[in-house]
Design a protein around this nucleic acid. Sequence first.
DNA 1: GCGTGTTTGAGATGTTATAACATATGCCCT
DNA 2: AGGGCATATGTTATAACATCTCAAACACGC
Lengths: 164, 164
Amino acid sequence: MNTPDTTAPSHDHQQCVKQALATAEHLCTQRGVQLTAIRHQVLELIWESHKAVKAYELLERFKPLKSAAKPTTIYRALDFLIAQGLVHRVESLNAFIGCRCSNRHHDQLLLICKLCQEVEERTPAGVLDALTQELEQAGFTAHNKAIEIRGICHRCAGQAVPEK
Amino acid sequence: MNTPDTTAPSHDHQQCVKQALATAEHLCTQRGVQLTAIRHQVLELIWESHKAVKAYELLERFKPLKSAAKPTTIYRALDFLIAQGLVHRVESLNAFIGCRCSNRHHDQLLLICKLCQEVEERTPAGVLDALTQELEQAGFTAHNKAIEIRGICHRCAGQAVPEK
DNA sequence: GCGTGTTTGAGATGTTATAACATATGCCCT
DNA sequence: AGGGCATATGTTATAACATCTCAAACACGC
């Protein structure tokens, strides 16, 4: 299987990655935390595409770079990257994606395509405000507000799709 | 550990369970599908509380009833119950809860308390409408719209809570 | 009672994630 | 330089979650 790695036919993914890594470096410096070699490499692997990537898949891809890598190696790097807001965990897939919002506020909507596996991040004020209001009414103190929706993205929907 | 099993101090959980099971029986009959002994017992176990319950925890609790039970036994029953809309899978916990809405439309908000583990279902029109609109704008065809929010419920927040 | 589809039994295996403990590395302080 | 501390990594093992496969039992319409 060799599906394209980019979010849109026209998008310059090199640029995407470059920017993500630059932002990461900048934020870590600013915060006085270490974006070590391992963490940097894992982040880079995650950014290879906009698809959600599994931990053990990262491990496989990481091994050529560092053959001693173990699950723990990956999970620790992921923990760090998530804590810094550089990566999202996609709960409904047990997988991970690079985060574009690049701060520690992860209030957002994730649109997860079942066909191309790509995940789009959105921060729709309307939905999030309504949610905040609802939570307040319920007296519920939220620790995270990531909304994950699975379905078919507009690009895949536009194509002749196999029944699934 | 022995935390109370009910959602509110005052609520009659017996009644809760009874109703859930009656509804389940009714719906299955209506739909011509079999709510077999195993499925019924698993559903009953899930309804023992409003806490999300893990598959292997169900397995342990199910074994006294049927010592031959294997993971497959539980997962098959769960698959059935989920397909019938009688149970929700809580993605962010890898766990399951009984569903009160009792139909196959699972568009809703789940409020998951980190302290008491209870899960409250809500169907806030404001949030769901805003979401529907946003998805339409994004050209995204959603297959499920379960929103899972983790945090602290109003009951737990009202108590002297240990720092967490 | 017979065939067909559904449900269950049984065992193995696959996948995801963490625990527990040892070792290294960088940095501040004296 | 040497000691103490915090952070990061290495290493091994295991826990926790989920599925596959193949065969046997069962329900039900004919």
